[in-house]
Amino acid sequence: MDVPKGAPDTKIVPALLAWYRREGRALPWRAPPGKLQDPYKVWLSEIMLQQTTVKAVTPRFIDFLRRWPDVDALGKAALGDVLAAWAGLGYYARARNLHACARAVSETHGGRFPDTEAGLRALPGIGAYTAAAIAAIAFGRRASPVDGNIERVLARLFAVEMPLPAAKPQIKALAERLTPAEHAGDFAQALMDLGAMVCTPRRPACGRCPVRPDCRGVAAGLADLLPYKAAKAERPTRRGAAFVAIREDGTVLLRERPPKGLLGGMLETPSTPWDERQPKEAAEVHAPLIADWTCVPGIVTHTFTHFHLELTVYRAEVGRDAKLTPAADPARCRWVAQRDLAHAALPSVMRKVLAHASGEVRATSKSRGARKRASAGPQRARRRSA
């Protein structure tokens, strides 16, 4: 591994710490510079911030803290309540692991987080980055968390030209070498803030950077180009059909997804499997009720980490005596009042489906050409507009 030798570490660390004391962001989970922070707040914020922005997380963090002010309270909460509060932040396995971790800390560790990286990594949902962040920020350990902001800062500071993700081990080694024995938490947060506020992905504000004199990327004229990234494979597209059944009492049929896997434990409108091919005879084979199903014009689109999703939406209004079909998997289904949907554990894609079915959102498919509507069958699916 090619780790640059003789870098001016002695200048970089004090310059960054001084800048952080002056310019560091005031965030609801942070203590003032020089102070150790509440491990619960550090842990909760770091889990929330994975693949999410500070702007999106801040109000949700405040709400979580109001509802569950400490790890014991969160551990005692119902998983469904935690999933509902998490809805919209995405990557829902994090919410399940959050709850499992809170229970483990409360029940196994007496409500106190372990204060070492090894001890933290033994907890559910805590990986190398999160363990290092908690150890450094909450306990003052000499640990080196490396997130996307820190990767970018160090790749530019040391002119690391190897593309990501191959460069990750080299950048991690640089972070470990730079991290001071004291104030490791402040140093990590200084790097995070520098990446968020100054050393941004596009048009970095090098003129305001406290370590510009020692930046090899600037010296090489590469600061706005680094880090290089290997080309990503194109995401495949999967397709499916979703069924929105509205009973005459105003309730909507929802189904709980299996506890493991994508969107595990969340609620959904009953749907077909998501495959690369458009499901044929969806209403006849997969409909959760025998009803007069209407195919809503357009499609709902959503992008996950590894694939794009396109959903055709069917809608039906049914009576109180409507019976579920075996395709619905009745044991996992429930009727939910529409007034309660705002607080239900519905992922974003399912909120899109419900909005589309109610006419609040009309996706178009002009660029894809007209799509074939499902043919009528035993369940009397009709070709008409919603």
Rank of each mutant, 00 (worst) to 15 (best):
D2Q: 13
P4N: 09
G6D: 11
G6F: 06
P8V: 01
P8C: 04
P14Q: 14
A18P: 08
R21P: 04
L27M: 15
A31V: 03
P32I: 10
G34L: 10
G34S: 11
S45A: 15
M48Y: 03
V54I: 09
A56E: 01
V57F: 09
F64G: 02
D70M: 00
K76W: 02
D81F: 00
D81L: 05
L83N: 04
Y91F: 14
Y92D: 13
N97L: 11
H99E: 01
H99I: 00
R112F: 14
D115A: 13
D115P: 05
D115K: 07
A118R: 07
R121Q: 02
G125E: 09
A128T: 01
T130F: 05
I134W: 06
A135Y: 00
I137K: 11
A138S: 14
A138I: 03
S144W: 13
I150P: 07
E151P: 08
A155C: 15
F158L: 13
A159F: 07
P165F: 05
P169R: 01
I171H: 06
L174H: 09
A175E: 11
E176L: 10
T179R: 10
H183S: 15
F187R: 08
M192K: 08
D193P: 08
L194F: 10
G195K: 11
A196F: 11
A196N: 12
C199H: 00
P201H: 07
P204S: 10
P204M: 11
R208F: 07
R208Q: 14
P210V: 09
G221D: 05
A223E: 11
D224I: 00
L225Y: 07
L225K: 15
A231I: 10
K232Y: 00
K232C: 12
R235V: 01
A241Y: 02
V244E: 10
A245D: 02
E256N: 09
E256M: 12
R257L: 12
P259S: 14
K260W: 05
L263W: 14
G264N: 03
G264E: 06
M266T: 09
L267A: 08
L267K: 06
S271G: 03
W274L: 04
E276D: 12
A282R: 12
A283C: 11
A283K: 04
E284A: 14
V285A: 12
P288E: 00
P297D: 15
V300I: 06
V300D: 06
H302F: 13
T303N: 09
F304Y: 08
F307E: 10
E310M: 12
T312R: 15
V313K: 00
Y314N: 01
A316D: 03
L324S: 00
A327G: 00
P330G: 04
W335E: 03
V336N: 07
D340I: 09
L341P: 11
A344C: 03
A345V: 08
M350I: 11
M350H: 14
K352Y: 07
A357W: 00
S358F: 04
V361W: 13
T364K: 13
K366E: 15
R368G: 12
G369E: 07
S375Q: 14
G377H: 03
P378A: 13
R383Q: 11
S385Y: 07
